[in-house]
Amino acid sequence: MANNTKKSKWNIHNRGEILWGWIFVLPTMIGLIILNIIPIFQTIYQSFFKTGAFGRGNIFIGLDNYQKMFGQSEIWQSLLNTIVYAIIEVPLSIFIALVLAVLLNRKMKGRGVYRTIYFMPMVAAPAAVAMVWRWLYNSDFGLINQIVQRFHGTPISYISNPNTAIFWVAVVGIWSVIGYNMVLFISGLQEIPGDYYEAAAIDGASPVRQFFNITIPLISPTMFFVTVTRVIGAMQVFDVIYMMIDKSNAALPKTQSLVFLFYKYAFQQNNRGYGAAIIVLLLAIIMIITAIQNCAQKKWVTYN
């Protein structure tokens, strides 16, 4: 008997907790469902249609959009551009951010100021950032080339040379994101108990050795999180390219990303169905990459 009453009490308590749990996650869930999950399915659905204006008069065309897409070299080129961008942006932004995080995690003068400075690009509107960089990069009037010429260097065409433009665009991407990555790394670093380092120091481990044997393994969960989110972010790159590479720029075919093409077809040419197909392709690619990363994490991520 006594056991029973205890159990039902526990149930009432438990039920209350479950209810409150739901109430707390509800706003997020509603937001996610309305703003993300439903649109995902709508987009997939739409990719099988030749869409009419204002969502009216859609004609079902089965896999035609996909057939057209896989036959277009433009799509494959821009997929390649997107991957190149990600390969440049993600590792460099993580490496630089990690170095900065380690440096700015020490006790030093003006630490807050430095952290703020590095985080600043994250606060600025991406379109504004891209506009400023576009002028910095300008081969005739840009500040960078003015400085290069001052030192008798040859001016470089940063964003109009098809072979190198994607790299210079990625530099802006890196610059914009290191602050954000850095803050995540700093929070990861602060999780690491100081005694580990003390113990290591007593055992005679050098700071470099400490970094590789204590810091890296213990910060690996943060690194995993940053890598996954950054890869997704980099695969979805759009604003920097859209703002910096003009329609008549010769480098456009070698810099336009998948999202750029999605925008071009869905919004500039009003072909929502085809745009949807492009974005479904991107979704599939991102899902595969993320799944691979999830499997690979067992090899290198150490959880305490």
């Binding site: 576009r134 990069y137 300008n138 081969s139 005739d140 009037f141 065409s157 964003i159 109009s160 040379n161 003009d246 008549s248 720029n249 010769a250 480098a251």
Partner: peptide
């Protein structure tokens, strides 16, 4: 006309007004 690099990087009216 200016080299194509210039045309693709700088707005034509900016070229004129400068």
């Amino acid at each position: 006309m200016p080299p194509y690099t210039t045309i693709s990087e700088t707005d034509q009216s900016a070229l004129f007004t400068s």
